[in-house]
Nucleic acid binder design. Structure first.
Lengths: 369, 369
DNA sequence: CTGAAAGCGCTTACAG
DNA sequence: CTGAAAGCGCTTACAG
């Protein structure tokens, strides 16, 4: 014998154990207990004997062995940047959708935490060591070059990808349209002096929201005022800094009547900054966000925002990725290289942070609190 | 040959491939590439040859095979109820800590979503099929009897367990003390008519917070008024219902001067309900929460609350669970059955939702909005 | 210092 | 309808 059992602790029952107990082969047990296809080949009596033995021994298939034999882990990975100052509600909602999707298909979900997409590229490649069948990237900001490094034996999907990568399932929402609709809504209730605090302009999502903002202004016949477009990033911290800086630079001058924020985190930060100066939302200034994350409903007033169906998007990414893995497993020849994108519609979530324009308040001086 | 390769697609390199390329055995390759302990036995030259071959072939160890041989998946599971009306910030923060902890120990994290602890007990048992080495239960509410069903070949940890289970790593925070401190703080700024909207009394956490509330009243010489203890559950929805019901039942009678809510979700709901009746926080009534979740910082005013170090707790649960798994793997005889608890301290997060008592406002009638 | 062998628990052709 | 065999890719004793 080549090996001694390392400890006498309760070893889980194997197919061989079940077979022995039922007086049949391990293979027959496998067919009955784990093989959906082949199980019909087994006679009813053998079948019941095997079932009984399995129940008695509390048989549970060993996933590692099964994965090794099948070359299939039945596990999908999720990679996301979850560190950084702000807790990531985007992550939470998308993850929920992904977990739901995986559960529906009897797949496991393994979560990988990243600090930085570019710096952690090698790490991502490292995850593709057979432990997952496919990997979903949440809001990746990677270049086409690093995308090319992704190994071919693992399949990928991306939610809100920054670059559209061929051979990857891309799941997006129509952000340009969402931003457009929101700004048109602001105009429709009477706003003309509309500020936008955006995400980092290098990000596809930030750019699309800016594009929608600009197109809506244009279609409304409102000239674009560069003073009113402020670049931030998608974090609350930065939203706060951007809002404070703008106010500090415009004391005594007219406030915008509405602020369209690049996402909910910025909007929440913005409301706080305004509150500190005694500016009330929506009485003095209307504020709106983008995402419809949990934050949108946990502020007072609740946030008018653009809803992206993040859960659904996560869930759909799972469906599409599994479909592709399935294809690859059963395919006899090359798969088509391009996969294309799925684009979800956005919709306005009208709540309490937007009202008709106020009294044209000027920016009050900062106060100590 | 017993099997044909199913497709010609890029097969990942194996140890045998590396060995062949380097002109050595697979075993030697294993020692160099994967075996921390045994790698010293290999001569430097063979070593470099193997490393070169591995790099050239982009060798990556196959986790399934390794897991099968080692009987160790290097994966920890996290089970939590993530559905239900409210998105779960508790889950997000604890999960972040767990992922961080696992990353530190080079372990994977697999997330299992549950609907209901009792109904999904069989599911939980099902997860223990070799795919994980240990499972962390987030805020489980299970009975001692169902806990006894948990299999012995998988190890468990529980964050905020509802019953303290022997043979399980329990990680808790000192909720009674946190509640006590908060109520004493309210008293110290002048409050004496302090209401508590609690979680479900069956929950250990809810009970402990109530205990702390009662003890603080007693130590402050304030008689307990049963009218001021309202049972809710830990959801925003229920918090809203409880607060509205209380106000409706007390129109024209004195408001409490402070409301200590069982968690932040209740506090946020409470602030909204008060706002609808034109009652201002903290001018008319002080409101405080428990948890210091994201919600605490996104309300206006920001919430005074009790901070639990959820991330740290998650991270520590990982440390302790892995320690135990390690012990079990190397142990020659039985482990001690009892594991005990780790209790984290709580601390007050003083923000803007608490002030000195107002003018003794009465409950105004409900208004339509 | 290095290799041949056996085994982890499963599955899939192939014979009967 | 059922079983014996080989293989998935790795690791750990055991010989040399």
């Amino acid at each position: 014998m080549a090996r001694q059992p390392r400890k006498k602790s309760v070893r889980a029952a194997t197919l061989a154990d079940v077979g022995r107990a039922a007086g049949v082969s391990a293979m027959a047990a496998s067919a009955v207990l784990n093989g959906a296809r082949t199980s019909s080949r087994i006679s009813p009596e053998t079948r019941t004997k095997i079932m009984a033995a399995a129940a008695k021994l509390k048989y549970r298939p060993n996933v590692a062995a099964r994965a090794l034999a099948n070359r299939r882990m039945n596990t999908l990975g999720v990679a996301a940047v979850v560190y950084g100052g702000d807790l990531n509600l985007y992550f939470l909602e998308a993850l929920n959708g992904i977990i739901e999707g995986c559960a529906r298909h009897n797949q496991n979900t393994t979560v990988f935490a990243l600090h930085d997409w570019t710096l952690d590229m090698a790490k991502i490649v490292g995850f593709c060591d057979g432990r997952i069948d496919g990997l979903i990237l949440l809001g990746p900001t990677i270049t086409k070059e690093s995308a090319a490094m992704l190994p071919e034996h693992t399949f990928f999907a991306a939610l809100h990808p920054n670059v559209l990568m061929p051979n990857i399932v891309n799941v997006e929402s129509d952000e340009e349209h969402g931003a457009y609709d929101m700004v048109r809504h602001l105009v429709s209730v009477g706003h003309r002096r509309i500020m936008h605090i955006s995400g980092k302009q290098g990000l596809l999502g930030a750019k699309r929201r800016i594009d929608g903002y600009l197109r809506a202004l244009k279609d409304s016949g409102i000239p674009f005022d560069t003073e009113l477009l402020v670049e931030g990033d998608f974090s609350a911290t930065n939203g706060q800094i951007a809002a404070e800086a703008w106010l500090a630079g415009h004391e005594g001058r007219p406030l915008p009547t509405a602020i369209f924020c690049g996402n909910d985190a910025i909007a929440v930060a913005c409301i706080e900054v305004l509150a500190k100066r005694g500016i009330r939302v929506p009485t003095d200034v209307s504020v709106c966000g983008f995402d419809d994350s949990l934050a949108a409903r946990s502020t007072v007033p609740q946030l008018t925002t653009v809803r992206q169906p993040l859960r659904q998007m996560g869930s759909r990414a799972v469906d599409l990725l599994l479909e592709r893995i399935q294809q690859a497993h059963s395919a006899t020849h090359e798969l088509p290289k391009s996969v294309g994108s799925v684009v979800f519609a956005t919709e306005l979530a009208l709540r309490d942070s937007v009202a008709t324009p106020g009294t044209g308040k000027l920016v009050p001086p900062a106060t100590k609190r």
